[in-house]
Design a binder for these strands. Sequence first.
DNA 1: CGTGCTGTTGATCCCGTTCAATGAGTGTGG
DNA 2: CCACACTCATTGAACGGGATCAACAGCACG
Lengths: 168, 168
Amino acid sequence: MVGLLLPSDFVGRPGRNEAPYDVVAATDVTLCLFRKPSFEALLRDTPSVERRLLELTLDELDAAREWMIVLGRKTARERIASFLSILARRNAVLNRTQPHNGMSFDLILTREAIADYLGMTIETVSRQFTALRKDGVISLEGTRKVTVMDFVRLMDEAGDDSDGGMLG
Amino acid sequence: MVGLLLPSDFVGRPGRNEAPYDVVAATDVTLCLFRKPSFEALLRDTPSVERRLLELTLDELDAAREWMIVLGRKTARERIASFLSILARRNAVLNRTQPHNGMSFDLILTREAIADYLGMTIETVSRQFTALRKDGVISLEGTRKVTVMDFVRLMDEAGDDSDGGMLG
DNA sequence: CGTGCTGTTGATCCCGTTCAATGAGTGTGG
DNA sequence: CCACACTCATTGAACGGGATCAACAGCACG
C-alpha cells in the first residue's frame, strides 16, 4: 500500500496505458470519470489544465517524500500520531473548519490497512491506539470513530522535527 | 534525505518559488541551468516540453512509491541489496551495458548518507555490507568501491516480492 | 606525531514482530 | 432466538532485528 486517496484527489495517469498499482475502494465512492482519449485531447488543447495537473503531481510528489520520512524515521507511536493528524487536518478542510479539540471523524480503514500503510503490524497499531487513548490524546468509540482530545499534543506526538537535527 | 539524484535527473519546481527540500551535491557536478522566468515561458510556449516534464514527474512519483515499499516493509539486508541493485542497474544504463557479474562502481555516498537514505544507522549499514561480502554477493575495495559478484543473487536478496502476498 | 573524520566491530538493550489466546460484532441456518 | 462460524480488534508473552553505546582501526591533514 503506497497511498491513500481522499475526496477531491485525482487518480490516473495520462500518457500511459498501464498503472503500476491497483486502486481499491475502502468505502462507497463517487467517481468523476474522464474518457482517456478525450481527456488527453483536452490536455493537449488546454495548456492551463495540463499545467494544473503538473502542479497536482508535484504536490503528490512532495507528499510522497514527506511520507518517506514517516516510513524511514518514525517510531510506531509517531506513525499513528502522524496518520491521525493528517486525517484530522484533511477532515477539517473538508468541513471548512480548523482542527480543534473534541473534533471527531471516522477511520475508513481497517487495522490491517492502517498497518500496511504505516509499515507495521496490526497488533502494534492496536497497541498504539490504546496507548494514545490511555494518555488522553484521543478517545475511541467502537473501533472506527476517533475523537481528538488534544490536537496540539497529537501534532507533538507525530514528532515532525522542525530542525533537521544537524545543529548543536 | 528523501531522494538521490543521478546524472540526467531534473531538479527544480516550475511554478513555485520555495522548495521544501535542499539539494546537496555529494560529488562534483555539472549542472545545466535554466533561468526560471525564461524556462517557465518556454513551458508556456511549448506544450510538448511541459508534457515531457509531466511525464518525468509522474515517473518520479512512481519511483517515490517504490521507495515507500523499501522503507516500510524491507529488512536491513533487503534495503542494502535494493540500494546496490538500483545503483548497479543505473550504472549499467549509463555505460550502455547490462548489469553483469563482476561489474563494479563507486558508492558516491558516505555510510552516514546511505543510512539516512535507507532509514537505518551507519552501524547497521556497515554490518550488512560486511554480511553481503562474506556471503559472496558483493566484494568491496576500500570503502567506496563495490563489485557485484552475483547479480541475480543480489536482486534476490533485495526481496522484491513478485506476488503481493495475497494468495494461497 | 597528534587530531579529526569515516568506517568497522562488539556488547547490550529495547521496540516492534511473532505467536497465541480472547473479545466483540455480524451474518447464517436450525 | 440461540448456536455457530467468521472477521476484525485487543491483549499478553517471548523473541529477535536493529538501535544504541562504546572501543578501535584506517587514513588524510597540519
